[in-house]
Design a protein around this nucleic acid. Structure first.
Lengths: 117, 117
DNA sequence: TTCTTGACCTGGAGTTACTCGAGGCCGGTA
DNA sequence: TACCGGCCTCGAGTAACTCCAGGTCAAGAA
């Protein structure tokens, strides 16, 4: 499929996909005879994963390492696993941050209510 | 107190505090006779709030508007309240994103396990 | 057939929110 | 008196996009 459809399916923007490819985050993107990119379903799954990793705060450098491992095949699965486990710990930390911020907002809003009475 | 202590208490870095002040995000910062910034406890509370808002994804522009309202006193509390309520909805969205990403990681890790068997 | 439209291409500039480095002042200590 | 650490400003650098200019090409309208 074409880049616009890959964007619609993965959640990434067209520009971001091109940027990611330039950063070597997306292996195996082929071109049609017109020079346009063609994305396989596997490409799109990969882009979708990148979308969620980035959306939840994985830095580019880590994604680059992750992509390089992915490009090397199944032998790198243990390394990839440890990257994802690390990220999963980051998610837990983010959730704590959200909770902490929620508390602070709740306190702040309550103080506002007092002023509004 | 001095900027380093304000940084330690708020969670922001020294550089970030200076940057925020330059962006008019921090009203009423006074200077001592040495030209150095002095932060009141109220300043630090404000910085702490900024820290959490930013950490959880509030854009600078919104923080600027929020700070401008804060500088104008209690009459702006309804507007400030609505900014915080909006942000609280953003937090909910982020939490959903984390959950979604968690699911995706879990699936991915399970597939890895199959390869490792 | 010619013209327009729309999706795609590349390369490069612009944006956001910091982050760091250079160079300088000042009060306290060895 | 010489050095040190903490503060200052200004300006450049960074991460991760995001947008724009200028160009190609295929398909449909006039």
């Amino acid at each position: 499929m074409r880049i616009s459809e890959a964007a619609a399916r993965s959640g990434l923007k067209v520009d971001t996909i091109r940027y990611y490819e330039a950063q070597r985050l997306v292996p195996n993107v082929v071109r049609g005879s017109d020079g346009h990119r063609r994305f396989s379903p596997e490409n799109v799954d990969w882009l979708t994963l990148l979308y969620w990793l980035r959306e939840t705060g994985m830095p580019m450098k880590v994604m680059q390492r992750f992509a390089a491992l992915y490009a090397q095949g199944v032998a790198t699965i243990p390394d990839r696993k440890s990257i994802l486990l690390d990220h999963s710990r980051l998610l837990a930390k983010r959730r704590d941050d959200l909770d902490r911020c929620d508390e602070i907002l709740a306190r702040k809003l309550e103080i506002y209510e007092e002023y509004l009475r």
